[in-house]
């Protein structure tokens, strides 16, 4: 319970947690209140209405309610981010575990490939890849996952290198434990904290990158309620119809901030040095 108390004392982290929790709750609950088809239907009469009681965030160039579209965009954003992060973890974590624990050619090759990926700006690589795979949310996700796993590999590799020399690993080797057992039953839990932190910050990062892909027209396809797409369209109506681009932009800002604050909070909370002093 002390760990819970400690978390509550970290106000930015609690704020991050509230934002993330709220976003997830919205994403789960919105189909109960909002009909997605209705939200995509154009309503030319009400186009480009400023924020009002009826339309809290105003309406867009086709007269659709931006508030509703921002809420529906949460689904897309979280879905993409979760899918990408899980896929990147599935690729990156085992590679990092293996490369960190063993020496030799395979480990060396894994890490050099990782370095090559990390040397190219992730966004440019993702754009290029998404372009090749064709427009659509799925190809954007593939492009992001393929470019994000090296971050996990790098993090896990560094942590495993540290844990590998720990006495308890040596003791297990002395007992002639199998490599699979050592890696997955012992090393993995000990490097879990940085993976969780990296995943949380990665969620924010992917939301941002996915929005950029949508903005550049290599991600989501209209009429899906994607935030990046909405900013791209709203941009043409700046500055007089400011609400069109601003509210999706704010949504991105808040959710990315939320994940980053939560990630930082988790980092402090899960820091092994602090954990031991508990």
């Amino acid at each position: 319970m002390l760990i819970f108390k400690k978390f509550l004392r970290d106000i930015p982290a609690v704020l991050g947690f509230i934002i993330v929790f709220a976003a997830i709750a919205i994403a789960i609950a919105d189909p109960l209140f909002i009909d997605a088809k209705l939200a995509n239907r154009p309503n030319i009469i009400a186009r480009l209405q400023p924020p009002s009681w009826e339309y809290p965030f105003g309406t867009d160039n086709l007269g659709r309610d931006i508030f509703i579209r921002v809420i529906l965009g949460t689904d897309t954003a979280l879905g993409i981010a979760l899918g990408v992060v899980l896929a990147a973890m599935a690729i990156g974590v085992p590679l990092g575990l293996y490369a960190g624990y063993s020496d030799g050619l395979v480990s060396e090759v894994i890490m050099r490939v990782t370095d090559v990926f990390l040397a190219v700006p992730q966004l440019i690589l993702a754009i290029a890849l998404a372009q090749v795979l064709g427009r659509g949310i799925e190809s954007a996700m593939v492009a992001l996952a393929v470019t994000y796993w090296p971050f996990f590999t790098r993090t896990v590799y560094a942590e495993v290198r540290r844990v590998r020399t720990a006495l308890f690993v040596e003791a297990l080797e002395g007992l002639n434990a199998s490599r699979t057992r050592i890696l997955f039953a012992h090393v993995l839990p000990n490097v879990a904290a940085p993976i969780i932190v990296r995943a949380s910050i990665g969620m924010g990062f992917i939301i941002l990158t996915a929005a950029v892909l949508g903005f550049l027209g290599v991600g989501a396809v209209p009429p899906s309620p994607d935030w990046g797409l909405a900013i791209a369209e709203g941009r043409k109506y700046l500055p007089e119809h400011w609400w069109f681009a601003t509210f999706p932009g704010l949504a991105i800002l808040v959710l990315v901030l939320g994940f980053n604050l939560l990630g930082d909070g988790l980092r402090d909370l899960l820091d092994p040095r602090l954990r031991r002093s508990r």
């Binding site: 003791a171 297990l172 000990n190 031991r276």
Partner: peptide
């Protein structure tokens, strides 16, 4: 297998998560 070892720091020889 008939030779076993007791570590200098047996605390560190135990996985902290187990």
């Amino acid at each position: 297998g008939d030779i076993q070892y007791v570590h200098q720091d047996p605390g560190a020889a135990l996985d902290p998560w187990w």
